[in-house]
Design a protein around this nucleic acid. Structure first.
Lengths: 341, 341
DNA sequence: ATAATTTTCGGTAACGTTCTCGAAAGATTT
DNA sequence: AAATCTTTCGAGAACGTTACCGAAAATTAT
């Protein structure tokens, strides 16, 4: 399988490779007529530019890497779709790696992607990423990085995040408005900023309504169904049953719901539930789960746009931070007030 | 940011680039001592081979493309994980594209991937892929392609599929054993082989138990929750209520379940359900859905292995077909017999 | 000791682009 | 008419690697 090269086109037209190259790259110093001629015969010959040669010459891979903790739940795949959409349009390729919530794997992924000479990275930190040294060095060296969703505020790079504080506040406020007075927050792992932000929203909502709370209402868990189940069992065993649970994400919340249901609690009457990062599962569980939905695709798009901007800005790029908003999808799991009918 | 090249190493050691290159490529014609020396100083200098130059020289991109219909549901992401695992180990990169069940997008993806000079493709056909001309040409030209999951048997290339026939048979048999006599099959779109295979299993199970059936028991749908909901509504409207439903996949089956539940039917007593391609959703819906689980990761791994083999076999590669098996996860949605307790 | 082989290596040409430089031709100014 | 500027183009280097060929050195065979 022999490929057509610009050399072949040049030979065919009795011109030089320089001219042919110029025709494809919108250079000013070429006669419009010759340019048209070149493009025409290139098409006739079935020419396809060799991206690898271009990459070698321009010392850029036109490839970026994206690292996510997992992509089994729908959120990260949707972000990736957003990222790819923007980057494809701009002639970039995307390499996807998953850290499986493991910091070592994350680091290995970064090195692999560096070996592939990616022009930049889009990363959502694993829940274990406490050591930021490697990132610090990368960023200090000017390497383009955009963090999203799970960021670390000590890192001086661009960030695209969801307004976790605000929507955790709204979610909690919603439960308070339903008459809940003893709400437990199943918070995610420490070390990622969203955990703190959502907790802060949860606490501030209490403050606003002058609702007291104690430390038993804040339970550290992980991000999986099993984590939620375990946490719920602990709560039930403790005998101190809350009237609502606000989970760090949907899997955790749904896991908790399952355990409470199995133990004979009625939802939402005995105990109400609100999740985070709306999912298809939320609409399927019985009763359907109230949850904060995030604009996953948009998060990906914004991250991609910023990354391209940084890559294509030679010097003096200033990190940008974008905060996006979502909505609270209220469903039966949190609706105690059925008066309006 | 200046990269170290083999030239720098050669200069440092007063040797030639050829020798340095030999050291990295396990060539026979190099003295083990000089090889060790080269590797040592390379490490000391922080040398990283430039993969792009290698690609240009070897006229191979060490990149493969994978095209999936979607990756919101967990199945395809898991396949992709399997694919990546094998390919990374072997020094390949993976570009991921999704067709969104649209044939035109699929074709566009292929062309984009061809422009990226991928060394091969792993594809699960979109449900609209009826025209196989483009694939025929690619395969005829010797381009390495492995189809999986949704294949087309007219194409003479390697295939990795699930034993849809066998497990559809088992799933149906399970329902028959539960005493169901009027089972409706919500089949997927025509044109992809798995639809025919699953239907065949469904029918043969009837045959084995000499259970008659009519054409109303075979309902054409799509692969989404909404498709299942619509199909269920149609069935209810028709007034002819079956005692079981066997769906083409979990979303369709769950969609149907929701509608039947809403209309007051008791599951599994009034009507039993069995899905396909086990999902997290299946364990969350009430009652939990019996479903056939597929070894998604293994499917990806096998597809990747075959693709590498084809890429690295110069001539005379013969297409391979692999059929994998799974298991029937029996849950409450299909358990009418509660005698054993 | 000479010839034949093996081992080890250096020089250089590729791979397909883009980039830099300078030159020829044409157009414009003085 | 000479001088200057603009437009257009070609030659060749460069990007970093591997492939190929031949030569020197070391080893073995005659």
């Amino acid at each position: 399988m022999k490929y057509i090269t610009i050399k072949d086109i040049a030979k065919q037209l009795n011109t030089s490779v320089s001219t042919v190259s110029r025709a494809f790259n919108d250079k000013a110093d070429i006669n419009p007529e010759t340019k048209a001629l070149v493009l025409k015969t290139a098409k006739a010959l079935g020419y396809r530019p060799n991206p690898i040669a271009k990459k070698l010459m321009q010392q850029r891979s036109f490839t970026i890497g994206i690292i996510v903790p997992e992509f089994i739940n729908a959120f990260f795949p949707e972000v990736i779709i957003g990222v790819q959409e923007i980057l494809f349009e701009n002639g970039y390729q995307v390499l996807i790696a998953q850290s499986s919530e493991c910091f070592e794997t994350e680091l290995k992924n970064i090195k692999t992607l560096e070996d592939s000479m990616v022009d930049g990275l889009i990363v959502s930190l694993s829940s274990e990423s406490n050591n930021t040294d490697y990132y610090q060095n990368l960023i200090a060296s000017g390497f383009p990085i955009v963090l999203f969703n799970r960021v670390n505020n000590q890192l001086n790079c661009s960030k695209v995040v969801f307004n976790d504080y605000k929507w955790a506040f709204f979610a909690t406020e919603h439960l308070i408005n339903q008459g809940c007075k003893n709400i437990v927050h199943l918070k995610g792992r420490d070390g990622v900023s969203l955990t703190n932000e959502r907790l802060r929203g949860f606490l501030d909502a209490h403050q606003k309504y002058q609702l007291s709370y104690n430390k038993n209402q804040i339970v550290a868990t992980g991000f999986t169904l099993a984590d939620g189940q375990k946490a719920a069992q602990n709560i039930i065993d403790s005998g101190n049953i809350p009237d609502a649970i606000f989970g760090a994400n949907d899997p955790v919340t749904i896991g908790a719901m399952q355990v409470f249901k199995k133990n004979g609690f009625s939802i939402p009457n005995d105990i109400a539930f609100v999740g985070f990062t709306d999912s298809q599962m939320a609409t399927i569980i019985e009763p359907p789960l109230t949850s904060v939905s995030q604009p996953a695709r948009e998060i990906g798009e914004e991250a991609a746009k910023i990354l391209i901007e940084q890559i294509e800005t030679k010097k003096g790029f200033q990190p940008k931070s974008i905060t996006l908003n979502g909505q609270l999808n209220i469903r039966a799991s949190s609706l105690k007030i059925t008066s309006l009918k």
